[in-house]
Design a protein around this nucleic acid. Structure first.
Lengths: 219, 219
DNA sequence: CTTGACAGTGAACAAGTTTTCATAGAACAT
DNA sequence: ATGTTCTATGAAAACTTGTTCACTGTCAAG
C-alpha cells in the first residue's frame, strides 16, 4: 500500500475518532475546521488521496458517508476493518460487538493527543449515557509473544484510561499496534513484548484506543 | 420508555442495520425508498417520534447524523445464565454473543445418549430455524491446566459433533465438566489434562454440549 | 358525531455538503 | 531550468438532505 503523508494520516485518524465518538462521519467542513484549512478543497484533495491510496472509500455524492477499506467479511453486523501497519507488525482489525448494540464502524474512543498525561476519559458523563463498548481485535504479528499474545489471537479491548504497564491498542503516528504502555515520568512510549522489536516512541500523535483486557485463542 | 409502533421499530431496525452494513447512516430518502414512502415527510414524522420517545437522537442540521440511545428495557442481548455445577469442577455459564444475534438460554443442543457413536447433530431443521450459537463457559477448577486452560478462563463452546481429541463440555453422569474426549474403538471416555485427575468413564449417559473452540483469558 | 392522535401525500424551500474550476507556491527529481 | 507532485486558496456550482407547509385519510376514544 502506498504510503500516506502525515496530514493524510492525521485526517484519517480524525475521521476514525469522529466516528467512534459520534457514531457518524464528519463532513468535509468538520475536517476543514479541525485542521484550520481555509478551503474545503484542501480536505477534498486529501480525501481523494486517501481514496486513491486505498485506505478510504467514499460514497459519491452522499454526505458523511465513508468506508474504511477493505471490507471483505461484510455480512451485516460484522464491520471489518483492515489496517495495514508497517511490515510484520501489522494488525488486522475486526470490529466485533458484544451485547448487540450498534457499532458505527471504527472503535476509537480517544482524541488524538500528543501528550498522554493530558489524555482524559473521552466519555464525559454529560455527553454519554453509558459505558463505551468493548471490541475485539485480531492480532497479526508476533510483537507480543512474551505476553502470550500470538498471531491469530483475538484481544478484547475496552476503552478507558490506561495505566503504566497496561497492554493497549494504540494509534501511534497513524499506525495501529498492540503494545505495552510505558510511562516514565513525562515520557511515554510503547514497548513490544518481544526482544526483537524496538520501543515505539511517539513522534506525532498517540491515541489509545483501549486497554487489552482479555485474549482469546483458538484451541 | 414509551412504546414504539411497528413501523417505528422497523425503521429503527433498518437504520441500525444500515449502519452496521455500511458504517454510515441512511438519509431520510434512503429510508423513504426502503419503505416505499411517497413522501419524505412520512419518514420525517417517524424520526420525530423516535426522537420524542427517546430511542434516537438526531443531530440538528447534520446529514446522516444520528445517535442511538441504548435501550434499557427488554434488551435481550446480555442474557447471563449462571449454572451451578456440582463440586469443584463446577462451571459457571455466561452466555456471550458475537455479532449481535439473540442469545437463547441454556445451550442444550444434544440429546442424551449413552452411545456416542450414535449421536447426531441434534438440530432438526424443523425445530430450529437457525444455526446454533456459540456460548461461553467460565472454567472452574484446574483439570485442564496442561491444555493451558486455567481456573477463571472462559471457553467458547460451539455445538457440533465432536471428534477424537476435541476438548468438549460434557454432561457426564449428571455432572458438567470440561475434558478432552477420547475415542478408543468402541470405548469412549473423558480425559483431564491434569495428571492428578483420573479419566472419567461414563457409566450412565454422556451428553456432549459442545466443542471448545476458543479460550479467553483475562490479561 | 366529534375530537384528537397517528400516518401519509405532494410540493417546495433552505441549509448542508460535495464537487468542480481556476490559480499558485514549495519541494523535489530530471 | 523545467516539469511534476503535493498542498493549499478562493469562489462558485451542483447536488444532497433535512425541514416546513398545506392537506387528506384512518381509527379509536369520549
Amino acid at each position: 500500500m502506498e504510503e500516506l503523508t502525515k496530514k493524510q494520516r492525521a485526517i484519517l485518524d480524525y475521521m476514525k475518532a469522529h466516528v467512534a465518538e459520534h457514531t457518524y462521519w464528519p463532513s468535509i467542513r468538520d475536517i476543514q475546521a479541525k485542521f484550520r484549512f481555509a478551503s474545503t478543497n484542501a480536505v477534498f484533495g486529501h480525501l481523494q488521496a486517501l481514496e486513491r491510496k486505498g485506505v478510504l472509500q467514499r460514497i459519491p455524492g452522499a454526505a458523511r458517508a465513508y468506508k474504511i477499506v477493505p471490507e471483505v467479511l461484510g455480512d451485516t453486523s460484522e464491520t471489518v476493518i483492515r489496517y495495514e501497519g508497517p511490515g510484520d507488525d501489522a494488525i488486522a482489525f475486526e470490529s466485533v460487538k458484544f451485547a448487540g448494540s450498534i457499532a458505527a464502524g471504527f472503535p476509537d474512543y480517544t482524541e488524538s493527543s500528543g501528550v498522554l498525561d493530558s489524555m482524559q476519559v473521552p466519555l464525559a458523563p454529560s455527553s454519554r449515557r453509558r459505558a463505551p463498548e468493548s471490541f475485539a481485535l485480531r492480532v497479526r504479528g508476533d510483537s507480543m509473544i512474551d505476553a502470550d499474545i500470538n498471531d491469530g489471537d483475538t484481544v478484547i479491548i475496552e476503552p478507558g484510561v490506561p495505566k503504566h504497564g497496561d497492554i493497549v491498542a494504540a494509534l501511534i503516528d497513524g499506525e495501529t499496534t498492540l503494545k505495552r504502555l510505558i510511562k516514565q515520568g513525562s515520557k511515554v512510549y510503547l514497548k513490544a513484548e518481544n526482544q526483537n522489536y524496538p520501543d515505539l516512541i511517539p513522534t506525532n500523535s498517540l491515541t489509545i484506543q483501549g486497554i487489552a483486557k482479555s485474549v482469546m485463542k483458538r484451541i
